[in-house]
Design a protein around this nucleic acid. Structure first.
Lengths: 162, 162
DNA sequence: CACTGAATGCAAGATTTTTTCGTGCTAGAG
DNA sequence: CTCTAGCACGAAAAAATCTTGCATTCAGTG
């Protein structure tokens, strides 16, 4: 899947382009070119290369959950009982496969997983916990944090020049 | 900026379009049209309406942090001392303004804020904690979870039809 | 000093996005 | 019941963007 052939180091042009695209990827290449002092085709080629190299992982529209009836965002810290490689991998796959699980990280510290869950109602969340946590006998404990305000949401990576 | 005039309810066409766009917003309108049985201009108009209504909040490229030297993702639970409206708002603004803070949620439960932080090194994180937490005398306590694996990352909202 | 590989800009060609225009449907008024 | 206004649609044209081909430049190498 991930192509390692074109692993060239990113220069300042690439970083400047990324910085624009991770804020608005509908920006025309011509405009990007003017901003970074390159021609549109040069910008194009760099973008395509970064996509192939996996530097750009996806191009997506960000949807407001509240406006599509998925109003509740919840954080969950999950602690497992046994941390063997097999069980951890199984948990990863299980969590990742659930659409309501928007993000899933395997972490160190007082928990093993942190999940970001998006659901329409608390009832739906309760059902999800039954399925995902109570139904998994390797889950020792989980703690829930309900988001009252999505203060800042995004996946933008801090890049040199902020 | 945000126009509240066109707050029409989303129909199944809109949801289908969103479902495509939140996975790949480079999909041509013509292709989307074929998928949902609509002409390209009809798709176009619906997209624009949803952008104006804020249903589509942004169009962005997702960048792999590791490939731009920002290899470490960290979760932080922050607990504050005083929870007055003013202090909470101040904290929101402060956290949101920091580029390294990729996401920030104000939550209920055993913590008040949950942050997702992206930094190049643990040293940088340590410096950030000094500035953001130790330097803020309304912060009672914070707990750090370092991500070992970004199992699932995204902002896709579960929509009818998954 | 010549050669190779990589990246560039320009210009042409292909594709997509956007606008224009005419039609059909539906709801409300006369 | 008929008429009209409002809306969304599709088809086609127009505008803009993306993509490709090609010649040139530059750095590194034999």
């Amino acid at each position: 899947m991930s192509d390692s052939s074109s692993l060239r180091t990113l220069d300042n042009f690439d970083l400047a382009i990324l910085n624009i695209l991770q804020r608005d990827n509908t920006t025309p290449q011509r405009v990007i070119g003017e901003a970074v002092n390159l021609s549109a085709p040069a910008v194009q080629r760099r973008i395509r290369r970064m996509e192939e190299a996996g530097v750009i992982q996806a191009n997506v529209a960000i949807v407001d959950p509240a406006q599509v009836g998925q109003a509740i965002t919840i954080f969950v810290e999950v602690e497992v009982i046994s941390e063997t490689a097999e069980l951890i991998d199984a948990a990863k796959q299980e969590f990742a496969a659930v659409p309501e699980v928007q993000q899933c990280y395997y972490v160190t510290g007082e928990a093993d997983f942190v999940l970001v869950v998006v659901v329409p109602t608390m009832t739906a969340y309760e059902a999800l916990t039954r399925r995902l946590f109570f139904g998994n006998n390797n889950v020792k404990r989980f703690r829930t944090f309900v988001a009252m305000d999505r203060v800042k949401v995004g996946l933008a990576v801090p890049l040199p020049g902020d």
